[in-house]
């Protein structure tokens, strides 16, 4: 059994470099969108669960964001993917709430 575990862990570690370069939509969302969409910021706080996934996609496809975000297409797609992943109709975490 231990030999099987070592083989499995080795196989998994070989895939590490490929994952390390993957774009991080959540980091882009926090950095780029969060620069304005924050408490006391230029724009209201935005939560991915404010809209359904398809609505987020349409929102950006129609160019409805009122301000040029200065993001590349690839970065914008990563942010949209993050928003869709955590949208109102996506899987949501469940636990007793922690007040802020």
């Amino acid at each position: 059994m231990q030999k099987r575990i070592v083989t499995m862990l080795t196989a998994m570690s070989l895939m590490l470099p490929a994952a390390a370069v993957a774009a991080s939509g959540d980091a882009l969302f926090l950095q780029s969108c969060g620069a304005c969409h924050k408490k006391g910021g230029k724009a209201a706080i935005v939560n991915p669960a404010d809209k359904a996934g398809t609505v987020w996609e349409k929102y950006f496809a129609r160019g409805r964001h009122p301000v040029d975000m200065g993001m590349s297409d690839a970065d914008l797609q990563a942010v949209v993917k993050y928003l869709v992943k955590h949208a109102a109709d996506s899987d949501q975490p469940a636990a007793a709430v922690i007040p802020k």
Partner: peptide
């Protein structure tokens, strides 16, 4: 929400499901 808590969500392929 006291069942299937961390780290069960990894195996269940979803977000956290319990306190």
């Amino acid at each position: 929400p006291s069942s299937e808590g961390p780290p069960s969500e990894l195996k269940e392929n979803r977000l956290r499901q319990s306190t």
